[in-house]
Simulated assay, not measured.
Amino acid sequence: MIFSKGRRGAGRHERANQPEDGVPETPATPSRGPYDAAEAPAGVQRLDLGSLQIPAVEDVEVRVQADPDGTIQQVVLVHGENALQLGAFAAPRSEGIWDEVRDEIEESLRSQGARTSHRTGEYGTELLARVDTPDGPAELRFVGVDGPRWMVRALYQGAAAADPGVAGPLDAILHGLVVDRGQDPRPVREGLPLRLPKEVADQAGAGADAGTPAPVDGVVNGQQHPLRANPSPRPRNAD
């Protein structure tokens, strides 16, 4: 058994059905993302960060925390006072992992004194949390999407955490997001690798050497959003 808990839902991307003749049916392309790289709509301008390809949305700033070699540790989309932190993780072929991951995130937050609840959103069950920060209480909203051999975890912060109706452009990012899982075997729940495009990494590195790490094509190297309540799924058995 890969998981100690039973599967409670397949997520937005349903696994292919297995008819009597043994030939799997191809699931219909979803009407919104996150999309798997094999089904992503063409003709959309996106920022390629490796396993995540982020659509260009007006007035949304992309911030990353990256190592000197261009490996990204954290990616956050910012629109006004709202933020959306994104992560993608390996998942098994046979079942989604968001339900179990959500339970573990909730347990971790509650152990730190956070108050939690749930709501049903467009992707299924979301986790809401109210946490204490040095600047006072803050609202968080975790959204999970199970895809084919991957899971996206989206963390909304700011007013968009308490009121999804104001998420607007950040929702547009999630709706247009593309996940490139790759074919390499990975442990279940391992974070999929993120990297800066080479030209961006080179330009950001040159700016850092000159002492002026300015935004490059919408990406800010080394920036970090102040709210970091982002427990990552713990790796389990190999895929």
Rank of each mutant, 00 (worst) to 15 (best):
S4A: 14
G9P: 01
R12S: 13
N17M: 11
T29Q: 11
S31F: 08
G33M: 05
Y35C: 04
A38W: 06
P41R: 02
V44L: 13
Q45K: 14
Q45Y: 10
L52Q: 07
Q53H: 11
I54Y: 03
P55D: 02
V62G: 02
G70Y: 11
L77C: 06
L77Q: 02
L77D: 00
V78H: 04
H79D: 13
H79K: 12
G80M: 03
Q85L: 05
P92F: 06
D99Y: 05
V101C: 05
R102Q: 14
E106L: 04
Q112G: 12
Q112S: 14
A114R: 05
S117F: 04
S117Q: 06
T120G: 10
T120Y: 13
T125M: 09
T125A: 12
R130H: 13
V131I: 08
P134C: 06
P137D: 10
P137T: 10
R141Y: 06
F142M: 03
V143R: 05
G147Y: 07
W150C: 01
R153D: 04
D163I: 09
P164V: 02
P164Q: 05
A167Y: 02
A167S: 14
A167D: 04
V179N: 04
D180R: 13
R181K: 15
R186Q: 14
R186A: 15
G191L: 08
R195F: 13
D202G: 09
A206F: 07
G207I: 00
A208V: 15
P213Y: 07
A214G: 13
G218A: 03
R228F: 08
N230W: 10
N230Y: 08
R234F: 05
R236N: 04
A238E: 10
